[in-house]
Design a protein around this nucleic acid. Structure first.
Lengths: 255, 255
DNA sequence: CGAGCGTTTGAGATAGCTCAAGCCGGGTGG
DNA sequence: CCACCCGGCTTGAGCTATCTCAAACGCTCG
């Protein structure tokens, strides 16, 4: 078993948590999408039961598949990868959670996926039991949760499209274009994209091997669509060409 | 553009609807999953606003992506494929809706996917506006919808795993094993699976070409895991071997 | 300055794509 | 009732994208 096998990817360096938890502090917290969906009153109720977690490092486990699910999480800052391992032990990154995203909804009381930090991150943690009660009392709040889950479903369907139809260069382009939407990672003026992920993470996200990701980068660079300033810092030289690459065919006719 | 291009797949024979709609008739309708989640009172309310649609043929359009979304649907009998077309015009089958499944939730008032019958089918049609109001009034009903959408999300994540990690023979095995769960299609005693889908549909579901699906069937047959009685009728000769195939590695080491 | 991880590139093997041709079964019309 | 036709299915051939194993490179941290 060379890589990508069960417990985790390369950095199984098992650094330990170093997480600090503190009660919700209204003053310090930037507003997030989930809050924006709620009324002030609802927000304050949610804050009353939320805890803020600060993960100082990457590759920290938030929760693991199969564990009892007591909490739901929301990203305040940083990036969390939501993963699942297939029977063969290979890891798939199902989704990347960015600020404002919600994750950790239980299935029959258990987490079905694992979640780890991809870089230092700040999260809200909300006890599921209390949230559940609150939802039953407040239909408007619940419908907001429904909207979020429906959004996640559409995102997942988008991933299905990409995995089912695109070659690796197209998937990578699509991934880069997605990250360019977030000013946390993309400096639009200088056209510089700073990726928080390793090639292993990107590979597991795109359903391919890290070497293939590296080669896809090389290919995009040769075609002058991007330029690698370093492995994590990518200059976007031609976003339109990236877009039209994604829109093209998976394979060009051999004739 | 040989196949799999925009409007639809081979049978663009454009047969027209022949749909019959009738008000909900309590006596004739088998209970479906969505109803099972609801109390009697809720059920009767839902029935009051539901219409039953009967599609007599396959390849009938229920709705198309981009249309205004006025209704939500639930499958009573038959199979519906939910599809989306990529920019290149290729079709992806995002999900197959079987009896009890719900589909057609709008995104910003529009359908984001298309839905077509795969065989003759009976559906419930519920006006979204009325359902929405009902949900706001009845939190328990809403939480059931939330559970359904969360279920769909997990299904979609499962598809992501399969598309991202498995080779075509594994995907096909996984597809067959799924269908074996439904007594509508699988005769457990005789071990006969009757597929409602063409090779084109299966290919678009599994993210591959129909020829490759045919070859995967040939491979499974040669390994004595299945036997094709006809292209649509498959004898399952070794379900355990199918399962362990799915659990194995995508590609065997070359050495 | 060495170790370790992550990245890149190379080489060889192969699964799956595309085009093409033949087959097969069921429905239709003579 | 049979022959034909058409759509779907299968198989073949050639090509290439991607996988796997290897090896070398280069940060970064200690």
């Amino acid at each position: 078993m060379r890589r990508s096998t069960v417990p985790s990817r390369p950095s199984a360096k098992a650094r330990w948590p170093e997480i600090r938890a503190r009660p919700f502090d209204r003053e310090r917290d930037p507003s997030t999408q989930i809050e924006n969906l709620l009324s002030r009153k609802q927000q304050s109720k949610l804050r009353a039961i939320a805890t803020v977690l600060e993960y100082q490092r990457s590759n920290n486990t938030v929760f693991s598949e199969g564990e009892d699910a007591h909490f739901v999480y929301s990203v305040v800052a940083g990036v969390v990868r939501v993963t699942r391992h297939s029977d063969s032990g290979r890891r798939q990154v199902l989704a990347l959670m960015l600020p404002g995203d919600l994750f950790g909804l239980p299935d029959a009381g258990l987490y079905v996926n694992s979640a780890e930090t991809v870089c230092p991150a700040t999260l809200y943690r909300v006890p599921w039991a209390q949230l559940r009660e609150m939802l039953l009392r407040e239909p408007e709040m619940q419908i907001n949760l429904l909207i979020r889950v429906a959004f996640d479903l559409r995102q997942a369907q988008r991933r299905i499209m990409i995995l089912g139809q695109h070659n690796v260069a197209q998937r990578l382009s699509s991934f880069l274009l997605d990250f360019m939407q977030h000013s946390d990672f993309y400096d639009a003026r200088r056209r510089l994209l700073t990726l928080p992920l390793t090639r292993f993470d990107i590979g597991d996200y795109l359903g391919t091997a890290p070497e293939t990701v590296a080669r896809a980068f090389a290919r995009l660079e040769k075609a002058a669509l991007v330029r690698r300033h370093s492995s994590r810092v990518i200059e976007i030289r031609n976003a339109d060409a990236l877009r039209s690459l994604v829109g093209g065919r998976r394979r060009v006719s051999p004739h």
